[in-house]
Design a protein around this nucleic acid. Structure first.
Lengths: 206, 206
DNA sequence: TAAATTTGCTAACGAACGTTAGGTTGCTTA
DNA sequence: TAAGCAACCTAACGTTCGTTAGCAAATTTA
């Protein structure tokens, strides 16, 4: 079932693809018009300005990310569990909107004030959600991490690189990506933990 | 001891700062001239084109990264050791050239052919160096990782976010950043490995 | 069927773009 | 002291930029 897009949504979608591949500034309204098969001036029957498109893409994605993390935290769980679900939710949003995500992550600096400032404060709020999960995990001994802010940034930066290589037809599904990422970030690369656990776990039998 | 910069190097440095903060396309030659206190046309006494500046920044940084990884692999060591040193080397290059690194990582797509293709193949070669370290660690049991390419990308994406927040006057030194990153990436967030090791290590006494 | 809305057009606006041509100044070197 | 060079200037080029005005056709709504 294909969604029927309004002309405005078609413009937004086409612009998003161009903004991702060429960047916002290097994409002209004539480029966009050409991709749509119409004249540049015609676009202005549907939008107010070039920047309006960027605003819509950025803040729609912001809303998606917040809805995802809200859903994660609506359910109870320890820090490990919540972090796993937060990662999976973030990966889901990213992989379901690869182009818009790329624009969201890379082109926001071309927003003018006050949107630019709004964007930054939203981003900080979102990062704070991850920081809080990590902090609670540190407090109850689930996590051992040198710096909670540093850990949150490192996790998010791993996640936010996905859009550069993810292809829906690729061999990893979003769920597998989330699982592999979680595995790496929670347990690290070294084999010894699992080995240690395998070796000694019989000592822990009740 | 301050390095004495030629005019061309001053232009490159100023342009790098502008390219980082506004992006290559959104930075005009008149912006650059204004930052230098001269007229736009005067810049062309020193450079051939706007893109030449971008090329120099990108490929100078590429050279820096390769020299760093070459130095890492000139010394012997197991995979864990080499990965630690590769991370530290990468962080060093990044933190010593924050602005050029940002341009290198974000603005390369504005290179025209054949430079664009050259850049991509260099980037792949560099990533392959990390993949090889990870693969050798997988083969001898040092690392347990779902996919070597995936692991390399995840590690590099964590590293490549640093330039967005690193400040030389901040509380973390490059060495501390590298150490914390290595700790997180090798051991993960969960506390259990060290705890397990602490708990059971007496069993391993020879 | 009349009115309203959607979608597009041509023509053009002033501003900004990267770049070139040609010339001037002042310092450095032979 | 003459030649060479580095650094910068003014003026201007052709092009592209985002955007507006005004109008026309088709489709939807009342």
């Amino acid at each position: 079932m294909e969604a029927v897009l309004s002309r405005k949504e078609q413009i937004e979608k086409t612009a998003t693809a161009l903004f991702k591949s060429k960047g916002f500034s290097a994409t002209s309204m004539r480029d966009l018009a050409n991709a749509l098969g119409i004249e540049a001036a015609s676009i202005y029957s549907h939008i107010k300005s070039k920047e309006e498109i960027l605003q819509r893409v950025c803040f729609n994605m912001a809303r998606e990310f917040f809805e995802a993390i809200d859903a994660v935290e609506a359910k109870e769980g320890n820090a490990t569990d919540r972090l796993k679900r937060a990662i999976a939710a973030h990966v889901n949003v990213l992989t379901q909107n690869t182009e818009a995500s790329a624009v969201f992550l890379h082109e926001w600096r071309h927003l003018s004030e006050p949107m630019h400032g709004t964007y930054l404060s939203l981003r900080d709020k979102y990062e704070a959600r991850f920081r809080e999960i990590i902090r609670s995990g540190m407090n109850n001994g689930e996590f051992t991490v040198p710096d909670e802010k540093f850990a949150a940034l490192t996790i998010l930066s791993s996640l936010n690189w996905i859009h550069t290589w993810y292809k829906p037809e690729g061999k990893m599904t979003p769920a597998e990506i989330a699982h592999n990422l979680t595995e790496m970030l929670l347990n690290g690369l070294t084999s010894s933990k699992q080995a240690l656990h395998d070796t000694y776990s019989h000592l822990n039998t009740p």
